[in-house]
Design a protein around this nucleic acid. Structure first.
Lengths: 251, 251
DNA sequence: GCAATAGTGTCTGTAAGACAGTATATT
DNA sequence: AATATACTGTCTTACAGACACTATTGC
């Protein structure tokens, strides 16, 4: 059977979405030394939830996670990483989860769901968060002061944060969080914010430059009554390679 | 509703297993400088497959992966790690997959499956592989010379191998692959085999001992007409801690 | 000149990595 | 004695990490 026909048949015969499996996307936003997470509050619930959704029968899990991020942020081509799957008969199936995941009030949303954890990186000033019909609020929360979260979403956020902090040493993080041209102090602040600790600026600069993922331009940024910092850009070739092959950065 | 009743209802009302999601467990076996993978060949198929299965509505994903490993190896308490989820509408749904995953000939096994990749470590001499009713053969294959694999199972094996080689630096690997007491040359050979490269024995010993995960006993192993090596054991406290918290080993 | 920020060079200490000779068990 | 394997110490080098002064900008 051709694939297009196969899809039509599957969709016609059953559900648009895969069953028993969901995606929770921890959408991180960065701006000006602040790291936030995009959360939404479902109608009539006092707790907050990650941007989640289901996998269409016609898309890969990465596409699904990307679509969910795009629905909430309006942005395409975000930095996206799968980090862990969570599955336990008790993680969904409480009263709360019925109300929370009850976007579609049918049996299978009350069922045992395995959720695939992804995280996404974006610049939160570029984003006007948008919830869906079942969402009462959708907004950014500082990572240090999150509101009460439904289900095991706090566990998922913590795992995403842990994965992000590990990945920052192995993948070129920053492209989606900074403007196309950025200064060393800007990317320095980004790394400090994500890692939650100060990094010696001299050593940081040396080591980041040694990876080759960024390069100096011949332009400077005017920042008022101070010395103008040089502008840098990501080196396309080295960036893509580090994204695919990984890299070693010990800062 | 009580949980026990909830499960009964769910199982009675639908399927025993979660739908659209499977587990593939890359069961690695080690013995005497050789690393193997446990594969099975379904009835009437010429290609081989990973040990896979589905998730019962009453168990967590880790429990399901553990159960699958136990069904094939007969062993409990194996080293088990989740490493990645694979999901794409085209990864299952070919003619081959119908025959392969057609253990239960019903619509949903022909459907789009997201599979959760786990890997397991064991000592293959301890294992008498056992397939199930639908399996024609179930046996160990050297990692260097795998037979043709169904679907994307080669991709999954490669990803598991990559994850294992990364994890060996961060988790105490060896407890399930060696006898309770083992010598430095034995664990040295294990690390060399998994990493696929030679490791200087002097530096290896220094650094492994520095982690504190193994400790010397006052016994030696008799190995014939040669100097008798000391026997070591894993240090329970440090081992458990490294398993939970991770560790740093640069070899 | 002042205030604020950018930018960078050097030193030290640690440890990774290279390297080879001695010890021991058996026949 | 011969053989095969276990065991270990030192040196070099690289680099991580600590550290502080100079440069630039606008007012």
């Amino acid at each position: 059977m051709e694939n297009s026909n196969r899809f039509k048949d599957l969709i016609a015969s059953g559900h648009l979405y895969l069953q028993n499996i969901s995606i929770d996307n921890v959408i991180f936003g960065y701006h000006n030394k602040e790291l936030r997470v995009l959360l939404q509050r479902p109608q009539g619930i006092s707790m907050w939830a990650l941007s989640g959704g289901y996998i269409k029968r016609t898309e890969s899990i990465e596409d699904a996670a990307r679509r969910i991020a795009e629905e909430r942020t309006g942005l395409k081509n975000l930095f996206l990483k799968q980090f862990k799957a969570f599955g336990d008969p008790f993680r969904s199936g409480t009263k709360v989860s019925q109300e929370f995941e009850g976007k579609q009030v049918s049996n299978w949303t009350l069922d045992y769901f395995v959720t695939l954890g992804f995280y996404t990186l974006t610049e939160f000033e570029l984003v006007k968060p948008s919830g869906d019909f079942y969402t009462e609020e959708c907004t950014w929360w500082n990572i240090q002061s999150l509101p009460p979260l439904v289900l095991d979403h706090k566990v998922i956020v913590d795992a995403a944060m842990k994965a992000l902090r590990l990945h920052i040493y192995h993948y070129p993080i920053g492209y989606e969080l900074l403007s196309e041209k950025f200064t060393i102090p800007e990317i320095h602040a980004l790394y400090e914010t994500i890692l939650g600790k100060t990094l010696d600026s001299r050593n940081f600069t040396k080591k980041l430059l040694a990876t080759g993922i960024i390069k100096k331009t011949n332009k400077r940024r005017n920042i008022g009554p101070h010395r103008s910092p040089w502008l840098y850009v990501f080196d396309k070739v080295n960036y893509e390679n580090a994204l695919k092959e990984g890299m070693a950065l010990v800062i």
